[in-house]
Simulated scan of single mutants.
Amino acid sequence: MRGTRQEGVANSMIGLTGTALGRFLPMHLCLDPVGRVRQAGPTLERIAGVDLVDRPFTEILTLRRPTVVSDIGGLLALEGRPLKLTLAVAPALPLKGLVAGLPDGGAMLDISMGISLIEAVSRFELTLGDFSPTDLAVELLYLHEAKSVVSAELRRLAQRLNGARVSAEQEAATDTLTGLANRRRLEATLARLLGQGRPFALMQIDLDYFKLVNDSHGHDVGDAVLREVAHLLRAQCRTQDLVARIGGDEFVMILADIVEPFHLARIADRLIRQIEEPIHVGGFECRISASIGVAVRARQDASDAKRIMREADIALYQSKGTGRARVTVFSPTADATGDPDAA
Rank of each mutant, 00 (worst) to 15 (best):
A265F: 06
R299I: 01
D269N: 12
D304T: 09
R307N: 12
H280P: 01
V281E: 13
A265W: 06
A268H: 08
L316I: 02
V296P: 01
Q318T: 04
P278A: 05
K306N: 13
D269G: 06
I292S: 00
I314C: 02
F284C: 08
I275Y: 04
I308Q: 03
E276D: 10
A298H: 12
E277V: 14
A290M: 08
E260H: 10
I308L: 15
H263V: 09
V281M: 01
A265L: 05
A295P: 09
G293D: 10
A298L: 04
E277I: 10
E260P: 02
D301S: 13
D304W: 11
D313P: 05
L316P: 01
E311F: 04
I272W: 10
L264K: 00
H263T: 13
L264D: 02
F262L: 09
I275S: 00
I275R: 01
D304P: 07
A312S: 11
H280W: 12
A315T: 09
L264I: 03
A268I: 06
V281C: 02
G283F: 12
Q300H: 15
I275G: 00
Y317G: 00
Q274P: 04
Q274Y: 13
G283Y: 13
Q274H: 15
E285T: 15
E277T: 14
M309T: 07
Q300L: 09
V296W: 02
R297T: 04
Q318E: 11
D304F: 08
V294C: 02
A295R: 02
I267H: 11
A312H: 10
C286E: 07
I275Q: 00
I279H: 05
I288A: 02
I279W: 07
F284L: 03
G283L: 10
F284Q: 14
M309P: 03
D313L: 05
D269A: 09
A265I: 00
R307W: 13
Q274N: 14
A312L: 10
H263C: 09
S291Q: 09
A290K: 11
S319L: 11
E260S: 09
A298E: 14
E311I: 00
A312F: 12
A295D: 13
H280V: 14
Y317A: 00
V294N: 01
L271R: 01
R299C: 03
V296N: 01
D313E: 07
D269C: 03
